[in-house]
Design a protein around this nucleic acid. Structure first.
Lengths: 191, 191
DNA sequence: GACGCCTGTTGACAGGCTGCCAACAAGGGG
DNA sequence: CCCCTTGTTGGCAGCCTGTCAACAGGCGTC
């Protein structure tokens, strides 16, 4: 921290946000294990100890960043066009593809699947839970049907894998992904 | 290594295997980041430096263990009962569920999804590739159709997520998973 | 049966990373 | 203008990993 930038004194919330955004920027490029707290501090233009002060632990900061990333913009999704279920499902898929296109770098980098790590999994599962709510509500289905929710969560597994095929491998183009996901979504909804 | 066990001199292959199996045992319980080379060495009853001697790096040992775990027993799977495609698909799914039931601990622990880490992903993708071959061959479909392969890989995403719902969450029972996967598999095969 | 060599095996070292704590200083209140 | 709250930092202690020279098991040789 003996850089050009002098010692600034910031509002805690502002500083927290600065650090979080720096973290998101780094995790967008390299995976968790390859980012040191020194890197994070440098990117945020801050002393390393400040990370611990605000987030306690490197891991906690990562979880926070992950949660931030996975938080779906709560907007819309309720107002989907179409009347028949298949049309509404197609619209939901389309909306998802748009969102992913925006956040492409981050979405793909932070790890999209289940990690085998309990805390990381918990964050991902939380995010999935609200996503399931959104989907079921948008499709006018019962959000309390546990078996149905489970099938949608399973469907999300395919969503992640299909995104990868589309964005990383390039083995499917966007229309193909749309068709695949829409068809599958409709199919799993009917028992 | 000043334990009870005296210094044994082993055939390199045997020692390699011992270490690998020790690693699989540990990774079955704790995730990669929480297992130190000291732990690995103790579990294998060996000096820490020997891990590096045989595998070069802690990470390389992990990748080896992961590859070992994901290697599908090459047996069978070609001789599936049933004649119609749906029957054969159902049989394939059933076979998969049996396999997972066996290796449950390991399968679930090592992380089932995409990790965001290039090398780990590569190992998982390799395993997926041969799995795709098996499935398409068993179902008498063209293993060279790239779009088809991509859809099957996407399907594997659902397979992993559904396994989780079944084994970890208990939100789906085995018959429900079977139905879900079979239906979906058949559905994605027909463009 | 004793000796010597090949090589499997190990202890110790160096570098790097994380969490913690006492000390420093920005900047608003008196 | 000074002081005090508290945001911020440098440095310390502990742990972890990769490397290397040295040790010793056990097979071949005499």
């Amino acid at each position: 921290m003996n850089e050009l930038a002098a010692r600034r004194r910031l509002d805690p919330d502002a500083r927290r946000t600065e650090i979080l955004e720096a973290a998101l920027r780094l995790y967008a490029v390299r995976p968790y294990a390859e980012v040191s707290t020194t890197d994070l501090a440098r990117e945020a233009g801050v002393a390393r100890a400040l990370l611990n002060h605000y987030f306690g632990t490197k891991r906690a900061l990562y979880l926070e960043a992950l949660r931030e990333l996975l938080t779906i913009p709560e907007q819309a999704a309720a107002e989907l066009p179409g009347t028949r279920r298949r049309e509404r499902a197609a619209a939901a898929v389309e909306w998802f593809l748009d969102t992913v296109t925006d956040r492409r770098g981050l979405w793909l980098s932070v790890g999209l699947g289940v990690s085998g790590d309990a805390e990381v999994d918990a964050v991902v599962e939380d995010a999935d839970e609200t996503a399931v709510d959104r989907v079921l509500t948008a499709l006018e289905l019962d959000p309390c049907d546990e078996a149905l929710r489970a099938r949608v969560r399973a469907f999300f597994g395919m969503v992640r894998a299909a995104s990868r095929e589309w964005l990383v491998r390039g083995s499917l183009d966007r229309p193909a992904v749309r068709t695949l996901l829409t068809t599958t979504l409709v199919s799993i909804l009917e028992d």
